[in-house]
Computed example of a mutant assay.
Amino acid sequence: MSITDKQLKAIAKLSEYDGPAKLNGGKGLIAKISPKANITFQYRCRFNRKNKRIRIGKYPIIALKNARQIHKRMFELREEGIATPVIN
């Protein structure tokens, strides 16, 4: 199941969150959710045979649409064999 803006808005309104710690957006994009309902977008991938977790940004400062665009560019760079830049 892909991440939706409706899900993120509902979670962001909460003061405490006890659901799943991660929502999967596909191809390595995840929304990591803390117990205090803070949402952070991350890109998970393997580069040079190592697992990498790169922080894209916090929701709602980075909207879901923007996180997907940044993720897409990072995914393309990784496919080209270029080290993915860290974007905060």
Rank of each mutant, 00 (worst) to 15 (best):
N66S: 14
L14G: 00
F41M: 09
G28H: 12
N51T: 08
P85T: 11
D5K: 02
Q42M: 13
S2Y: 10
E76S: 13
P35G: 06
L64D: 00
R46D: 04
K6V: 14
G19Y: 06
A12T: 03
I61A: 11
K52L: 14
G81R: 10
T84D: 07
S34C: 05
I39R: 03
R53Y: 02
M74I: 13
T40Q: 08
F75E: 13
P85F: 05
I82F: 11
R78V: 01
K50M: 13
R55T: 15
M74L: 13
L23Q: 09
Y43M: 08
K32D: 15
K22T: 11
M74R: 06
R68I: 09
K65L: 11
R49N: 15
A83E: 15
V86G: 00
I62G: 01
I39L: 09
N48S: 04
A31H: 01
N66T: 14
F47R: 08
A10C: 04
L23I: 10
S15K: 15
T40H: 01
I30M: 00
I87M: 10
Q7G: 03
L23N: 05
I70M: 00
L77N: 05
I3W: 05
R73C: 05
R55F: 07
I11G: 02
K72C: 10
G81E: 09
R55Y: 03
G28P: 11
L77E: 08
R49K: 14
M74D: 07
N88Y: 10
Y59H: 02
A10W: 01
H71M: 00
K36E: 10
K13H: 12
G28Q: 08
E79C: 12
P85D: 08
L23P: 10
S2V: 13
K72H: 13
I11F: 04
I11D: 00
L29H: 11
F47V: 07
E80I: 00
I56W: 14
K65P: 02
I33Y: 03
E80G: 01
M74W: 06
C45I: 12
K6D: 03
G25T: 05
E76W: 05
P60L: 11
I54P: 02
G57F: 09
K72S: 15
A37F: 01
K72A: 15
Q69M: 12
S15L: 10
K22C: 06
G19E: 08
P35K: 09
T40N: 01
E80T: 01
A83N: 12
K50Y: 05
